[in-house]
């Protein structure tokens, strides 16, 4: 088991960096390598980082095949309006999935692929289950849902073709101090819109819990999907009240104006986030313990409380004033 080669795609993102730093402490991990378009967010001691854009297929294939990983951890995904506009995010995610998973398929040592997915994959159509389990039908109703469904589909196809196991970690919306999240950004606005007629509940996951789950999935060689969701739930109104934000009740066409204004103020509301505000987003996390051997450390309400505890700007004066 020891000395296995692990390749992490999307290692430059906050979640990817966190995963890589956790993998560095794992005894079963031998060599560790990763790629991303941006450099890692913090210093990684054992990880060999390769900076390349998702559309550089040849370089990606060359790098991945040369490394010949046993385990591929694919977290190179772009959530709409997190770091890129929705159409750009979809393109980048698709390019990364195709080139990285495709490249890994060429590696003879490959045994297991772990992909980062999301509970948006279940969709929130009318009549959709309140807390879908992993066996619920995949019926995405948002662009991000379709994107993660596409990643899982690509990985499953490759897994079937080359005979490796594929595990999908379906994360709830990830919140953390440095994670670019449209949900987190909107909840931290001074005024938070909510649907006065619905105000449905949603669940989230702390970034560290998400990273621990992905590392656990790689360790156990996950070969099926698993929902990774913090226990508990909260509504937008409740979250706004906990954060002492001004809740703005909206109904019907008011949302169109709110979306436009929020976009101008730097907190765009993509369709999967709009879905959270109108239909909620929960998932059954009861199989986490069975499949991964861990449970989330932080409850949804605590994650939201921490969201509001982050300082907006930390100003550190220079130790020596030179001017």
């Amino acid at each position: 088991m020891g000395g296995r080669r692990v390749f992490v795609s999307g290692v430059g993102g906050e979640l990817g960096t966190l995963i890589a730093s956790l993998l560095e402490d794992e005894s079963w991990v031998g060599e560790l390598s990763g790629i991303d378009a941006d450099p890692p967010r913090r210093r990684l001691h054992r990880t060999a980082f390769h900076r390349m854009h998702p559309d550089e297929h040849d370089r990606i294939v060359e790098t991945v095949t040369k490394f010949n990983p046993h385990v591929l951890v694919h977290v190179g995904v772009w959530e709409p309006d997190a770091r890129a506009a929705p159409h750009v995010a979809a393109t980048l995610t698709d390019q990364a999935a195709t080139s990285i998973i495709g490249a890994a398929a060429e590696c003879p040592a490959l045994e297991n692929v772990i992909v980062r997915s999301g509970i948006e994959i279940y969709g929130r159509a009318r009549g959709a289950l309140t807390r879908p389990s992993e066996s619920a039908p995949i019926q995405p109703t948002s662009q991000w849902g379709h994107t993660v469904a596409g990643i899982e589909h690509t990985a499953a196809l490759v897994g079937e073709r080359v005979g490796v196991t594929v595990g999908a970690v379906r994360l709830a919306p990830v919140l953390g101090p440095h994670v670019p999240s449209p949900l987190g950004r909107l909840l931290r606005m001074p005024a938070v819109p909510f649907s006065v007629l619905a105000d449905p509940p949603f669940a989230v996951i702390q970034d560290r819990d998400a990273a621990l789950a992905i590392v656990a999935a790689a360790r156990v060689g996950l070969s099926e999907p698993v929902n990774v969701v913090a226990p508990g739930a909260i509504t937008v109104l409740q979250a706004a009240r906990r954060g002492r934000r001004i809740p703005i009740p909206l109904i019907g066409r008011d949302w169109r104006i709110a979306r436009a204004m929020s976009h101008m103020l730097g907190a765009p509301i993509p369709d999967h986030l709009s879905e959270v505000f109108h239909r909620g987003r929960l998932a059954d996390n009861s199989r986490m313990q069975e499949l991964l051997g861990i449970v989330p450390e932080t409850k949804t309400t605590d994650v939201v409380d921490r969201l509001y505890d982050w300082p907006t700007v930390i100003r550190q004066p220079a130790r020596i004033q030179v001017a």
């Binding site: 739930a233 909260i234 409740q238």
Partner: peptide
């Protein structure tokens, strides 16, 4: 009970 919360099922 904590104020302003819903349970896992809403």
């Amino acid at each position: 009970e904590q104020t302003a919360t819903v349970d896992d099922w809403g």
